[in-house]
Design a protein around this nucleic acid. Sequence first.
DNA 1: TCGTCCATCTTACTCAGAGTAGGTTACTAG
DNA 2: CTAGTAACCTACTCTGAGTAAGATGGACGA
Lengths: 199, 199
Amino acid sequence: MTTAKRKRMPRADRMRQMIEVAEQVFSERGYAAASMDEIAELVGVSKPMLYEYFNSKEGLLLACIRESRTVLREVTEQATVGAADAEDALRRGLLAFFVFIRERRQAWSLLRHEMALIGTPAADEVEETRRQQTDLIAALMSGYFDSGDDLRAEAAAEFVVGACERLAIWCERHEEVNPETATEYAMDVLWTGLRQRAR
Amino acid sequence: MTTAKRKRMPRADRMRQMIEVAEQVFSERGYAAASMDEIAELVGVSKPMLYEYFNSKEGLLLACIRESRTVLREVTEQATVGAADAEDALRRGLLAFFVFIRERRQAWSLLRHEMALIGTPAADEVEETRRQQTDLIAALMSGYFDSGDDLRAEAAAEFVVGACERLAIWCERHEEVNPETATEYAMDVLWTGLRQRAR
DNA sequence: TCGTCCATCTTACTCAGAGTAGGTTACTAG
DNA sequence: CTAGTAACCTACTCTGAGTAAGATGGACGA
């Protein structure tokens, strides 16, 4: 990218570059079909360098996922500060999320495909990202809602995360649905409930 | 299983047996970590037999996923026949789903881990399962709801599927939450909406 | 009873790609 | 100008998916 034909670059820079390329390749080909040789070649470096910095293919994937998670967290947290009430907070958070997934498709596609790796670090890592969002929502809610039933509140937070994730994937198939509309759809069901629409 | 020490069994039977074993191994080890050699050994047959019947590792996975999907469809469709109204239909469907995932954990865990295989048949297959459920819900709703906005209705259906999927995963971590309670939590948010609980 | 047909099954490979051992080169400080 | 070390490379091993080519058991007609 940076037209650097000079080799030898400092560890931190090289790592960033590797993550950038890997994110691209993983989301294009899929984790399984992506080869470390190809990533190394695109970076312009030999394979052992990848292993030097990330230990394994899965380690490289992990780094990509963590990278995306950090951005997602920053974006959604920022969005909800200074919200007027629960409804406002929820709406702002949702909008930030839907904007994120539109602007950073590749990163999102990595987060969304939860590896066929039950019990492996990568699966845990994706799960951890959801937990992060769930906690955020649960925290938001507890500030505005009657607690009453903690288990129920936790379930509600999981619910919101799952629903939005799915809606986001649906949005990929519907270019015409912009983040604002998606947010409105989500709020409609979440906040108002389906009862309102029953005959 | 059937204590058959006699080899040579008819194609159909052998395939069923292979799918049974594969479902077990895939959900235990994860798709990537599972080896065809191991599955073949557990079945008591040599590897080329697996390829004879399923063509590839992914083909075998596909067969497992399709198997589960068929059962899921039967169960949920059956549950909703003869529902009194939209609320009742939704509740029955949800309960059937939550019972299914509790009773058939392995099958569910296969459906839930959507392979790190963007653009490959297996990913499409899992997606197809969701579409099946989404269509079912959309059909249910259209029978009871004002149509008005088709896109909105489609979005709502996606929403329900995603939310329930996530809630189901959450249930795995909470043994104390039985299908009935899960259904109640889901109905609470979906039907009533979060507004009811705001301070 | 005996062939003969073919579906079921096997042994024994190839090949791609993850991961590594051990050595080489360019920059940097003294 | 010479260490010293961080960045880098060549050239391997090894596991596991996928396959070629052939062996075998048993149903069924003669």
